[in-house]
Amino acid sequence: MSQEYRTGREGEEFTYRGHTLEELQEMELEDVAELLPARKRRSIVRGLDEEQQKLLEKAREKDEQETANSPIRTHLRDMPVLPEFVGLTFAVYSGQEFGRVRVEPEMIGHYLGEFQLTRNSVEHGQAGIGATRSSKFVPLK
């Protein structure tokens, strides 16, 4: 990859548990699983399901093609972010729409769904006339 990934500190290269991004990308999936948190490690050790395997294959093909114009669409919010995904763009389904998620090195060890929110924040306006029982008796002028 031609991009240079850095941490928040000035001049430091990204590392994940003592390994650089290049080292992580060259590792086998089982070796990467040893570095991940327990829940993600368990899902990889037990075996990714059929849909997750397909998504992993799509990501590997997309990495070879190097076309970042169209994101990889997926409903798999429970897919762990692997080092192979860094630099790719996914369209993760939120329940209503597909939101773009560009995978950065800091996302390794999380789920794809953590970066596409499913709930919107609600901003209520002022209560109008008739909105509550007490507002019936508010004088208009």
Rank of each mutant, 00 (worst) to 15 (best):
Q3P: 00
E4H: 14
R6V: 12
E10V: 13
E10P: 05
E10W: 14
E12G: 00
F14V: 08
Y16F: 14
G18Y: 10
H19Q: 03
H19I: 00
T20F: 03
E22R: 03
E23L: 06
E23Q: 15
L24Q: 09
L24T: 12
Q25P: 01
E26W: 10
E28K: 13
E28G: 09
L29M: 12
L29G: 01
E30I: 03
V32I: 14
V32R: 05
A33F: 02
L36R: 09
L36A: 05
L36V: 06
A38V: 14
A38I: 12
R39M: 06
R39T: 10
K40G: 00
R41L: 00
R41G: 02
R41T: 01
R42I: 03
I44N: 01
V45R: 15
R46I: 04
R46Q: 11
R46M: 10
G47V: 04
G47K: 02
G47E: 03
G47R: 03
G47H: 09
E50S: 12
E50Y: 12
K54S: 01
L55I: 12
L55G: 04
K58T: 01
R60L: 10
E61R: 12
K62L: 05
E64G: 04
Q65K: 11
Q65F: 05
Q65W: 09
Q65L: 10
E66G: 11
T67W: 10
A68C: 08
N69D: 05
R73M: 10
L76W: 06
D78C: 01
D78M: 04
M79C: 08
M79I: 03
P80L: 15
P83M: 04
P83S: 06
P83V: 09
E84G: 11
E84W: 15
E84K: 15
F85S: 00
V86W: 06
L88S: 09
T89L: 07
F90H: 03
V92Q: 06
Y93G: 00
Y93I: 02
S94W: 10
Q96C: 04
E97G: 03
E97H: 13
F98N: 04
F98E: 00
G99V: 13
R102T: 13
V103F: 14
E106I: 04
M107I: 01
G109F: 09
G109A: 10
G113S: 02
E114D: 09
E114L: 02
F115P: 05
F115Q: 03
Q116I: 11
L117I: 10
L117W: 05
T118K: 08
T118A: 02
R119V: 12
S121Y: 13
E123A: 12
E123T: 14
H124P: 05
G125W: 08
Q126P: 01
G128I: 07
G130Y: 14
F137K: 08
